[in-house]
Simulated scan of single mutants.
Amino acid sequence: MERDERELRGAWTRYQRHAFHSPSPALSPWVERYWEARWDYAEPYRQKIVPYPNVHLSFGGGRADVNGVCGGYQIKVLEGRGHVFGVAFRPGCFRPFLGASVSTITDRVVPATEVFGPDLPMAPDAPAMDAFLLARLPDDDDRVRQAAAAVELIAEDKALTRVERLAAELGLSTRGLQRLFAEHVGVGPKWVIRRYRLHEVTARMAAGGAIDWAALAADLGYADQGHFIRDFKGMFGEQPTWYAQRYQAAGSGPGPVSPSTRPDAPR
């Protein structure tokens, strides 16, 4: 299968520009970052988006949407010139804004006015979103903090590969942990663990050099390489060796790629 040259070794950065902004400190317990994406394509480009467990509020093309966590990758076709501004909420922290279980919007896109009302600014920047969200700060919630801490632990502890261990670390039963994630994160703890451990794979791709796939699968807690490949393909839509070509020039080995320009960098 022939590859689109624009997706190899960060070539897409010639056509796209991404920027990230910090929210007001008072919003930081709920909002991870603001982000912007601009693109200019003479020919349509199939942008692969690989999810993290963030809910996003996005503005672009004359509409505003709340994007629930997706269980797998998505393809968005970019063409012409475009711009999107977004709010990435911290994993586990969107429920107070939604007023319902976050699992109710998993794999869904909801008109943002259904969640935030008609006063939502339709062409915002970071200061405008700060003002809008600061006026709607939720009350402190122990369960929100617990869910956020659980996801942070998964992200930071690379040796954490089992749901049972996470439950023990948090002092919860496995079932209690699953309920916490359904209510506040929108996907299960097993999915979140798998997503962050597979991030380790793309980090190694970006670092360059040969990869021992069997050893890497074992390091990530997989019983065998076949299960690792199945999970990777389910999340990224491609075999690991095929996906690795996004980090290398045709006919060469993997080369270093800036974290901000990785194909799976958080959007």
Rank of each mutant, 00 (worst) to 15 (best):
D224Q: 07
L216Q: 06
E200S: 11
G226D: 15
G209V: 08
H199C: 14
A207Y: 00
W213L: 02
L198S: 03
D224A: 13
L216P: 01
H227T: 14
H227E: 15
G209S: 08
A218P: 00
L216H: 03
W213I: 02
R195F: 00
A217V: 07
A214Q: 14
H199A: 15
A217E: 07
R204S: 06
Q225M: 14
Y222G: 05
A214V: 14
Y222R: 07
D224S: 12
A206Q: 02
G208S: 05
H227C: 13
R195P: 01
A210G: 12
I211N: 05
L216D: 04
D219Q: 13
D224W: 00
H199V: 14
H199Y: 11
G226A: 15
D224T: 10
D212I: 09
Y196L: 07
Y222H: 06
A207E: 11
L220C: 06
A217W: 04
I211V: 13
R197D: 10
T202M: 07
G209N: 06
G221D: 06
G208V: 03
R204D: 09
D219H: 09
A206F: 02
T202Y: 04
G226P: 00
A223T: 12
A203S: 10
A223H: 10
R204T: 07
A223Q: 14
M205A: 04
A203E: 13
M205L: 12
R197M: 12
A215G: 14
D219K: 10
G226K: 13
V201M: 01
H227D: 15
G209P: 04
R195T: 13
A207P: 03
M205D: 03
D212V: 09
